[in-house]
Design a protein around this nucleic acid. Structure first.
Lengths: 117, 117
DNA sequence: CAGTATCCCTGACGATACTG
DNA sequence: CAGTATCGTCAGGGATACTG
């Protein structure tokens, strides 16, 4: 399947999903294990108290297939798996930084109603 | 309803939907009418040949309520309605520009399979 | 520990018909 | 022209149980 010519549409497909942007952002600090990512994603998330493992697993797989992250399986028992950014993933960090900076200025602390008003 | 502390999550809510980012981007050139936006969105979209008016209408309403655009109804017959960016919407343009720039470098022209490989 | 399997439900989106 | 009304489909996501 060909991607759209429009880079924005491609971008949207790439990061579609609830956690993908935050996963990439979290990984900039270094490799993280599956459980560490889940815990990190839970902190700072208001609505949900648990992340369905099915969902996180799917998003990690998609990010891997997109080439933004790599999965390293240590093949041990009990299992240990680490995820880390690829160079392409690292190149994406400034984009997320721009998003965060804008969001901090214009979104955070405001309620939806306040924005609408 | 309070927004998440996380600016990324807020951002995702704000631009969730197929056309919102492209609408804002298109409006940087100046005010656009409903039909002009629809036509512009169709060009450069691969899969779809028509945009359900219900969908476009909903996204425009959401963008308006978010404070990124304003709706100006001329109150004439036949109806004429223009959408334009608010200052907040204009401040968002550089973010989209960053997304586009990154997408041009890393996404455009590649197939999904090529990225996966 | 790092997932997979199963079920369900909501909401995004498409298509079409219609209206002020 | 700029939408609204109605209908249907499907993927995203939550919850829970289970496994190598």
């Amino acid at each position: 399947m060909k991607l759209h010519q429009c880079p924005v549409a491609s971008f949207q497909k790439l990061i579609s999903g609830k956690y993908k942007l935050r996963i990439v952002w979290d990984l900039q600090e270094g490799p993280r294990r599956y459980g560490e990512l889940r815990a990190s994603l839970l902190r700072g998330t208001v609505g949900t108290r648990t992340i369905a493992p099915r969902v996180l697993s799917r998003e990690l797989k998609a990010l891997t297939e997109s080439g933004l992250i790599v999965r390293k399986d240590y093949g041990t028992v009990p299992p240990k798996v680490e995820y880390r950014l690829t160079p392409m993933g690292r190149s994406f960090i400034p984009v997320i930084a721009a998003i965060r900076k804008w969001g901090d200025r214009h979104l955070v602390g405001r309620s939806v109603e306040a924005i609408a008003a």
